[in-house]
Simulated scan of single mutants.
Amino acid sequence: MDACDRRMILNEARDIVLLIMAGLVMTFTGLGCRDCAFNSKIFWIISSFSSLIWVVLWKGNDYIGSYISRKISWLHYPVKRFFIGMVVTIGFSLLAIYLLSTTYNAIFDINISQNVYFPMIITIIISLFLHGRAFLMNWRKTSVDAEKLQKENIMAKYESLKNQVNPHFLFNSLNALTNLVYEDQDKAVKFIKQLSEVYRYVLDTREKEVVPLEEELRFLRAYLFLQQIRFGNKLVVEIDIQNDSEIRIAPLALQMLLENAIKHNVVSEDDPLLIRVYTNSHYIIVENNIQKKAMLGEPSLGVGLENIRKRYEFLSTTRVEVNEDQSRFQVKLPVLTGAAA
C-alpha cells in the first residue's frame, strides 16, 4: 500500500468519524429525538440510527455523485448532470432512510420515523451545495485545460515556422539560385519570384489558425518549384485535389509533411521519391514511398509531426492519423470547413 492509498483511507476514516459525531450531537441536542433526554436506551438507539443515517447518506451520495460524473460530463451536459444527480440523490436518500427505519423498527420495536426528517433536509441542502461545487470545479478545470491547449497551439505554430522555414531551406534555395543564374536567367527570375511567394505566404499566415486549401496549394506549388529546381526528376509530386472553396487547412501543414518526406528519405535518380497529395471525403492525405536515409547523429524525434497533431487537436475533434508499412508512409489530416481565421 503506497502513501496515496494510506492517505485516502485515513481521509475516509476521518469523514466517517465526523459523521458519527454529527449524529451524536444532533441526538444529544434534541434535534434528532424529543424523548431521548428521558430514556438512555432510546438515546443510544436513536444516536446509532442518526449516526448511521449520516454516514450512509453522505458517503453513499458522495460515491454515487462521483460515478454519475464519470458517466455524464458536467462540461457537455451540465443541466442533465445536475437533474439526474439530484433525482438519484433524493431517490437513494429516501430508499436508504426507508430501509434503515424499517430495520430499526423491526429490531427495537420503536417508531423511529420521526427522527429522519432533519437528516433528510440537511442531506438535500448539502447535496445541492456539493453538486454546485462539482459543477464549478469541473468548469474551472475545463477553462484551465482550454487555456493550456490554446498555449500549446500557439507554441506549435511558432515551432512549425521556426523548424520548417529555417536557414537550411534558405541556404539550399540560394545555393540553387547561384547555379541557376549562370545556366538560365529566365528561370532564375522565376525562382526568385517563387521564393518571395513562399516567404510572403509565411508572413501572411503567421497569425492565422486556418487558411483556404486553395491558398495552401498555391503556396505548396511555389515551394515545390524551388525543390524541383534542386532535385529535378529525382522528386516526383502528384497533387490530386478537387477545388473546394469550403475546405480549410492549418497553414504550412502540407509543406511541413513534404519537407519531412524529403528530409528523411533518399532522393536520387536511381530511387526517385514519389509524394502524393490527395483527398477523400474526410481527410487530406499525404503519402510517400519509404526509402529511408542512413541518419547520422541522433535520430529524428518527430517534432514537426507532433506540432501538426497538436494544432489539429485545437482545430478539430478528429485526430491526425499516421500510417506506416514497409513501403509507404501516410499522414491523414482531417478536412476542416468554415471561414478562415
Rank of each mutant, 00 (worst) to 15 (best):
S51Q: 06
G65Y: 07
I64V: 13
D62F: 12
V55F: 01
N61S: 09
S66V: 14
I42V: 07
S51D: 03
N39K: 08
R70F: 10
G60A: 00
S48K: 15
V55Y: 00
P78Q: 12
K80L: 09
D62Y: 14
S51G: 08
W74L: 00
F38Q: 14
S73N: 02
V56I: 10
Y67E: 11
S50Q: 12
V56D: 08
G32S: 04
P78C: 14
S40K: 15
S48I: 14
F38N: 10
R70E: 11
R34Y: 03
L52I: 04
I64N: 11
R81V: 04
R70T: 09
K80E: 07
D62N: 05
R81M: 02
K41I: 12
W74S: 01
S73L: 01
L75H: 07
C33I: 09
N39E: 08
I45D: 08
S73I: 02
I68L: 02
K71R: 07
S50A: 15
S69V: 08
K41Q: 15
A37Q: 10
D35W: 10
L52Q: 11
W54V: 04
S48T: 15
S48E: 15
W58P: 06
H76V: 14
L52P: 00
G32P: 03
D62K: 11
S66M: 14
P78D: 13
K71C: 03
D62H: 06
G65H: 04
W74P: 04
W54E: 11
R70L: 11
A37L: 13
Y67W: 14
P78V: 13
N39F: 05
F38K: 12
S48M: 15
R81G: 06
K41S: 14
N61Y: 12
S66N: 15
D35C: 06
V55E: 02
I72G: 14
C36T: 03
F38P: 15
L57T: 07
W54R: 08
G32L: 03
D35R: 07
N39D: 10
V55M: 03
S51K: 04
I53M: 07
R81T: 09
I42E: 10
L57R: 02
S40V: 07
W44I: 07
Y63E: 12
I46R: 08
I46H: 09
G60D: 00
W74A: 01
I64M: 13
L52S: 15
L52W: 02
R34H: 06
C36F: 02
I68K: 00
I42H: 04
W44L: 09
S50C: 10
S50W: 01
S47I: 00
L57H: 02
R34G: 05
I64R: 11
N61Q: 06
N39H: 06
K59V: 10
D62M: 12
K80T: 10
I46P: 00
G60M: 00
I72N: 14
I64G: 14
W74K: 03
S47A: 08
G32I: 01
Y63I: 08
I42Y: 09
G32V: 05
V79D: 10
I64L: 13
R34K: 12
C36H: 02
C36A: 11
K41C: 09
G65C: 04
W74G: 00
W54N: 13
K41R: 14
C33E: 09
K80V: 07
N61V: 08
I45K: 03
R70P: 00
L57D: 01
K59M: 10
L57C: 04
